[in-house]
């Protein structure tokens, strides 16, 4: 187990360096004028040029520049945005909103996905099953750029149940509609996987054994069927995190939430290299760590799995 974790951590370091290097390269390299790129559209004076060249080690080879950047990153120094704001500050503003949004989305996805998936799996072929299955199919095919504006139109503008935009300091209530939109695709996939998994497990021999013991139907489902059906569903949470992060770019944009997604998009559009690389680095770490945790959780849930 320890060996497995160490190997995974080493692989994660490689992946992290690879991913951040690529993004760093995309944001900084191959620019006709890196300093102009750093400064965005503003004119640059020779003096500023001098400062920036030193600050970003622009006279050194590219890989060395990346090395300096990484060293800063590892000591917690994300640098400054093009507008001169410390990126650490931007992050501490943006992350809480996105974490709230993502957790809320994940909460809805697990609640509805597993709940409805369980019922559908237990009653295969029923009206409930067929309806949810058709619904999930539509939701899986529904791009978030379609879902977000339409949900905003229907539930925000027309029905007025939720605020249309979340605003600078989004309340939990204001985040509900965006979270439902963001978690929709995850809900659908989770529902389908839970349903398939439950449908397979209710026919399993050990479920028959559990019934033969005279356990109550509730206990058979809750302890034996559900527990075993959750094993594949857990893996999905790791994969979903990537989808959620990507979806957050659109959702936060549409609902005007000042989170990681909207900051990133802004950074990319204004070619704010330091900001983008900083945010992406954190995202990659979050993604990798989540996936490692999910894999470890998998081994906890299924004792047959042995990592070495």
């Amino acid at each position: 187990m320890a060996r497995y974790i160490i190997r995974r951590l080493l692989q994660m370091v490689v992946t992290f360096i690879g991913a951040t290097f690529v993004v760093y390269a995309l944001m900084f390299a191959n620019q006709n004028d890196p300093i102009q790129a750093l400064a965005g559209d503003r004119p640059v004076s020779d003096n500023v040029r001098q400062v920036l060249t030193e600050q970003y080690h622009l006279n050194d080879p590219f890989v060395v520049q990346y090395g300096y950047y990484m060293r800063g990153l590892l000591t917690g120094d994300f640098g400054k945005t093009l507008t001169g704001r410390p990126i650490g500050d931007v992050m501490s503003d943006a992350w809480p909103n996105t974490i709230k949004l993502a957790l809320l989305a994940l909460f809805f996805a697990t609640l509805f996905g597993i709940g409805a998936g369980l019922v559908a799996g237990l009653r295969r072929g029923s009206a409930f099953d067929n309806t949810t299955l058709a619904l999930t199919l539509v939701v899986v095919g529904l791009p978030i750029i379609v879902l977000a504006p339409i949900a905003q139109l229907v539930f925000g503008v027309k029905l007025g149940w939720f605020p249309t935009t979340a605003g600078a300091r989004p309340s939990l209530y204001g985040l509900i509609l965006p979270a439902l939109v963001l978690g929709a695709a995850s809900t659908a996939t989770m529902l389908r996987l839970t349903r398939a998994s439950v449908a397979e497990n209710v026919r399993a021999d050990y479920v028959r054994t559990a019934r033969a013991k005279g356990l109550s139907a509730r206990r058979v489902v809750a302890v034996h069927v559900l527990r075993n059906s959750m094993i594949p569903v857990i893996t999905l949470i790791g994969v979903d995190l990537g989808t959620l992060m990507a979806g957050a770019i659109i959702t936060e944009g549409v609902f005007n939430i000042p989170g990681v997604g909207s900051k990133l998009l802004l950074g990319i559009q204004t070619e704010d290299g330091p900001l983008v690389v900083g945010f992406v680095s954190v995202l990659v770490v979050v993604f990798l760590v989540t996936n490692l945790l999910v894999d470890l959780l998998y081994a906890v849930l299924d004792p047959r799995i042995r990592y070495e």
Partner: peptide, 15 residues
């Protein structure tokens, strides 16, 4: 791993 480490949409935007 490296390619999957960044969500497709995010990477696509940057690229």
């Amino acid at each position: 791993d490296v390619v999957l480490g960044i969500p497709l949409l995010l990477a696509a935007i940057v690229l």
